[in-house]
Design a protein around this nucleic acid. Structure first.
Lengths: 111, 111
DNA sequence: ACGACATATGTGTTTTGGCGCATATGTTTT
DNA sequence: AAAACATATGCGCCAAAACACATATGTCGT
């Protein structure tokens, strides 16, 4: 059950849970600097938290030029699916500012 | 999302996850000394971990004489339900010794 | 009432985890 | 090539969490 413990541990930090929550709700790849802006956390902390999430395979990364985009690792087992479903139940109301900021950001991308 | 973080934190420790896993799989109340025997942990640590699980309302207790029996808090929301379902997917194979010991123990109770 | 049993908790120690700062690495732009 | 930008990471510090030991509290049996 070590794998599962690592997942729970990864999700037991506010910044990391917010990142996974965001990725779950926007259903898009997002780069580090965007997360930094949305969550108003230091870049070095966001990078660190992303590394932790990557290590437990909750997220994956893809480099595009100077950016690194992160996205949810596609579901590969039932445990992950249920955890993901659980995160999906966390209401948007608690993340009003973040989701709004994020949508503005994603909109700007097109230009 | 604080409540959810607290749940994840509570489940991100091996002893605590094992306790919840046991309660999920045996579907019975179980007392502290039985958990101590099954998990081979110190009594004072088991008591402490139970307190943490109780604080986040994952488990509840009922006193019966000199024993205190613990059991899963009845599901009250979707998040809890999905987390519980996720824990249910953790295979018994990783807990062979524990579940065996537990069943022997529960058997002895009848006598 | 006393000893045995079951559980909880106070205290000190050690381990773990997150943070801030500085800096390294790599990429794009001019 | 140099400057600007994007991301990652080494290091030291502090706080939270887990542990061990001792002990307190409460209950049962005799």
């Amino acid at each position: 059950m070590d794998k599962q413990i690592e997942i729970f541990k990864a999700l037991s930090d506010a910044t990391r849970l917010k990142i996974v929550w965001l990725l779950t709700n926007i259903d898009e790849k997002i780069c580090v600097s965007e997360i930094v802006e949305v969550l108003e956390e230091h870049q070095y902390n966001v990078s660190r938290h992303l590394k932790i999430l990557k290590n437990v395979k909750l997220v994956q990364e893809v480099k595009e030029g100077k950016w690194v985009f992160y996205y949810l690792t596609p579901i590969e087992n039932e445990f992950r699916q249920l955890i993901q479903d659980a995160i999906k139940t966390i209401p948007e109301s608690q993340m009003h500012n973040e989701i709004k900021k994020c949508k503005v950001l994603l909109g700007k991308r097109e230009n």
